[in-house]
Computed example of a mutant assay.
Amino acid sequence: MTDFDRQYSRVGTDSVKWDSIRETYQKDDLIPLWVADMDFMAPQPVIEALKEYTEAGIFGYSIFPESLYEAVITWEAERYNYSLKKEDILFSPGVVPSIGVAIQAYTAPGDTVLIHDPVYHPFANMVKANGRIVSASLLVERNDHFEMDLADMEARIVAENIKLFILCNPHNPGGRVWDKEELLAVGKLCQKYGVTVIADEIHQDLVFAPRQHISFQTVASDFADFSIILTAATKTFNLAGIKNSMVYIKDKKLRRAFKEVQEMTEQATISTFGLIGTEAAYRHGGSWLTELLSYLSENSRFTQEFLAEHLPQVKMMPPEGTYLAWLDFSELGLTDAALQKRLVKDAGVVLNAGTLFGKQGSGHMRLNLACPKKTLAAGLQRIAAVFG
């Protein structure tokens, strides 16, 4: 059994989540509930595999082992009924670098790329950084979750000659796990107009029952003809620092174009730690993940009940997946700047500003649930003391 209640000190470890906030906000004793990594120890089998490697003491170049491909293929097949072959799998230092490669491979400078709003902010950042134009279709909040506005998406695709769409599934920051009917509808829309789909599925394993993750390429037999899948073990098993992700591309033309850009930018070289950690996680991390999901689900329930009792003005969108909570502070009537200032200066809690994820994020904050319950409770109590 993993002790997810154990509180580890990450201060002084060069942690982005914990060590950058003192310099950013010039304030001590802040509780960081922002950056999307976990305050939990990684699975012991992963730690042991990496320890065995470091104890050998030689850190030369590594090949991609057959056993790694086998572990990836087995994980996807057994958990998501997603059939892959070795040639379908490429490796990348991370999902965000892969988005950059895909933008260069499948669009030209000046092209428009479709995303949602709100959505994980590097989507827009990478589009702009590569000299493309962002078209953001607003998600509709209905029945306590986000839904896609397919009519708006179609209008944008036609009017702006869009050829690339970046899908976040499960959705960050809203925690929405898109169902088969929704994925089928958006897939048919993109297929109709020749739009290539990049599906960021890095949160695929972090889904709460009874919801189930459905990979975009499994929705229909021909969806793999115009899409690529991005995922990783790093988000699931708290391994962001080992830098490895997978890109699943079944269509030969799409795969060739992606590989060409990878080769031009040297984006296919992976740290040996990434190779070893990914394989160990997929081979031996299943039971740890089951325990993690139970703990995250309880943290989500606790947060919803706490807010309902102590801070009913703040509404939480119940996450179906991820370990991220989307909080609506708009009833407080504060500007985004004032909200952020009061959270940091008065409450001593750091959350991600909703505006980071798009214009529709105004009045919202993203909270990271992946921490010991004592840490989470302390942060929520501070927020309630200021706004309650």
Rank of each mutant, 00 (worst) to 15 (best):
A220C: 10
I229M: 05
I249K: 03
M246H: 13
D222Y: 07
I242P: 02
M246A: 11
A220L: 05
T231F: 11
N244D: 15
A240M: 08
D225C: 08
D222T: 13
F208R: 14
L230M: 06
I228N: 02
I214Y: 10
F237T: 01
L239H: 03
F216H: 13
F237R: 00
A233W: 00
Q217M: 14
T231N: 11
S245W: 14
I249N: 02
K235W: 02
A209W: 03
S245M: 10
K250G: 05
Y248L: 14
K235A: 06
L239Q: 07
M246P: 10
S221L: 09
A233V: 00
L239N: 03
N244H: 09
S215D: 04
D251G: 13
A232D: 05
A232G: 07
T234A: 14
T236S: 02
T236V: 01
A220E: 08
M246V: 15
Y248N: 15
N244S: 15
R211V: 02
T218L: 11
P210A: 04
Y248W: 12
D251T: 05
F223M: 09
S245F: 15
V219W: 09
V247Y: 06
Y248H: 14
L230S: 04
T218C: 13
T234W: 01
S215H: 15
R211G: 04
G241P: 01
S215L: 06
L239G: 02
D222F: 09
P210V: 03
H213P: 05
A232W: 01
I214S: 08
T234F: 01
H213F: 13
A209I: 02
S215F: 08
A232H: 10
T234S: 11
S227P: 08
F223T: 10
S215M: 15
K235T: 04
K235I: 09
I242V: 05
S227C: 09
M246C: 12
D225N: 11
A232S: 14
I214W: 08
V219P: 09
N244M: 10
N244A: 14
G241N: 03
A233Y: 00
H213M: 10
F226A: 10
N238Q: 03
A240E: 04
S245G: 13
H213D: 04
F208S: 04
G241I: 03
A209L: 05
I249D: 02
P210T: 06
N238W: 00
A209M: 03
T234Y: 01
